[in-house]
Write a protein that binds this DNA or RNA. Structure first.
Length: 113
DNA sequence: ACATTGACGGAAA
DNA sequence: ATTTCCGCCAATG
């Protein structure tokens, strides 16, 4: 029953492990948890995060594979996400992360095993 | 029950 | 590099 909750919990857990100043993608998280649930489900979980969970989940560190801040409209204010990222040393121009590959944090590699 | 949408991603054209 | 199309799965109309 409610496998969804377990899935949400897993997503939150991984997101919380993202180091400051690093970012990851929905797909990377989905892949780390197992491709059974696609990237869309990760986005779904994040959407539920702000409602059911507190702000202990750094959702601003999760962007799409293109390094774009696609989820900024789901924050308190559209610019909050960008501000939080720049505050951590990540440069964002036109809702896109600069040197995305450099800041990218892959749970598969970093948490590997 | 069917169609569209979505914090996505990858392959193909 | 850009656009188009398909797979993914739950929610919503």
């Amino acid at each position: 029953m409610k496998n969804h909750e377990d899935f949400f919990q897993n997503v939150y857990d991984v997101v919380r492990l993202i180091p400051k100043g690093r970012v990851t993608s929905y797909g990377a998280i989905a892949k780390y948890l197992g491709t059974a649930r696609s990237s869309r489900m990760v986005g779904w979980a994040m959407n539920a995060a702000h409602s059911s969970r507190q702000n202990d989940v750094p959702a601003h560190r999760v962007v799409n594979r293109n390094g774009e801040l696609t989820g900024k409209h789901h924050f308190s204010t559209p610019f909050l996400m960008k501000e939080l990222l720049e505050k951590e040393g990540i440069k964002v121009v036109k809702d896109k992360i600069k040197n995305f590959n450099k800041h990218f944090w892959d749970p598969m590699k970093e948490l590997e095993l």
